[in-house]
């Protein structure tokens, strides 16, 4: 037995702690931090919606139709006299549910397909990639529209319809980084040790593509929110009277845009802000997680 080496005894502390990493992120990526703050704010609003919204979002009040923003209705009311602020607050639940649901599902399925495709290579890779190419050939919104038309429009179906176009986009990116992981000697070592395919893909390859995965995930949430709003705007997403931002923009809002602009402006702002926040956060996350872009 060889004698232990003396220099091995000192303990090197190189792993950064969470609060420190967060402070670092805030200092180096102020825009990303703003995005993160907006996201946290949205999550709080969605979580506390019944507590903080001043009115019932579906309560119709014919006495206050198209009311201007005032102390009673901060952001005004719509053509049915429903409080715009309350509907915005409750709409954030729909937006986040569909946004996170679709992007987590889409990114997860995409990641497994991407890593599997890269690991098995050859024919499996060829077929998986061609199927992905077929899906990529359709524009995001067209594919989602077609799926909603087939499935019918309930919230689970809406999530499904937005998930499907996300899958190939994630699979493509994850496959690219999994291909380089596949060439790593530790994957060969795992194969030489006689480990099963599932273990190699899930334990050895998937954890090493977490960085691009998280980046895709945050970018997808923004896109999914936008897609949900678009579908709802087109009447193929969430149905009345459920509060949803895209729905608030459609229908009567178009008709009353001149007389009651607040009906359109505030949900529009909410959508923009949400998508903007997720994109900013995603971009900064990419920069922070990519060691090649990390400033010393």
């Amino acid at each position: 037995m060889a004698t232990p080496l003396a220099y091995d005894l000192e303990v090197v502390e190189t792993r950064r702690r969470w609060p420190e990493a967060l402070r670092d992120f805030g200092r180096r990526r102020p825009l990303g931090a703003i995005g993160a703050v907006v996201i946290v704010f949205m999550l709080l609003v969605a979580g506390l919606a019944p507590v903080i919204s001043p009115y019932d979002p579906v309560a119709i009040d014919f006495g206050a139709m198209l009311a201007r923003p005032s102390s009673a209705h901060w952001l005004g009311t719509d053509s049915f006299g429903r409080d715009v602020l309350s509907r915005l607050v409750h709409g954030s639940r729909t937006a986040l549910l569909v946004g996170f649901g679709a992007s987590i599902l889409g990114a997860a399925i995409g990641a497994i397909l991407g890593v599997g495709s890269a690991y098995f290579g050859g024919r499996v890779d060829l077929y998986v990639q061609r199927v992905m190419d077929i899906f990529l050939a359709f524009p995001l919104i067209i594919l989602a529209l077609a799926l909603v038309a087939i499935l019918g429009n309930s919230i689970p179906n809406l999530i499904m319809a937005i998930t499907v176009p996300m899958i190939p986009r994630c699979a493509l990116v994850i496959r690219a980084s999994a291909l380089s992981i596949r060439e790593m000697a530790y994957v060969d070592a795992a194969r030489a040790a006689g480990f099963g395919h599932a273990r190699i893909v899930l334990r050895h390859m998937l954890p090493n593509v977490m960085a691009p995965f998280l980046i895709m995930l945050t970018a997808f949430v923004g896109q999914a929110i936008l897609l949900e709003s678009s579908l709802s705007f087109l009447g193929l997403g969430v149905q009345e009277p459920t509060p949803a931002w895209g729905l608030m923009l459609s229908g009567a809002a178009v008709e009353f845009a001149e007389r009651a602009p607040w009906m359109a402006i505030f949900p529009g702002l909410a959508i923009s802000l949400a998508v903007f926040a997720f994109n900013l956060f995603g971009d900064s996350l990419r920069d922070a997680l990519d060691p090649r872009l990390r400033t010393q």
């Binding site: 790593m184 000697a185 530790y186 060969d188 070592a189 795992a190 030489a192 040790a193 006689g194 050895h204 954890p207 090493n208």
Partner: peptide, 18 residues
């Protein structure tokens, strides 16, 4: 495979960083 093992050239890529 249990009875036949390998040591690789590059000590940096041969261990799973996670």
């Amino acid at each position: 495979r249990r009875r036949m093992q390998v040591i690789f050239q590059d000590p940096y890529s041969s261990l799973n960083p996670r």
